[in-house]
Amino acid sequence: MSADPHEKLIYMANQISKFFESKPHAEGVAGIAAHINDFWEPRMRRHLFEVVDAGGTGLRPLVMEAAQTIRRPAPEHA
């Protein structure tokens, strides 16, 4: 896979999405958000939001929906 962090995170988010897509819609959306909130370090979520905020190119629709409830990480600080 490419070294571009976005590409990799898009892939991972979509992989999570595919698992939750077989669930009832609301449960699936909540599942993706909870999963990413629980397991993704802020740096990863920050990159994810860079994609989301730029229109979400490449992300599956369910990830975009879940993004509403994914925690935005605190801005970068040293």
Partner: peptide, 9 residues
């Protein structure tokens, strides 16, 4: 209170 990085991350 935030999760950390996994090895691949």
């Amino acid at each position: 209170n935030e999760p950390g990085l996994r090895i691949p991350n």
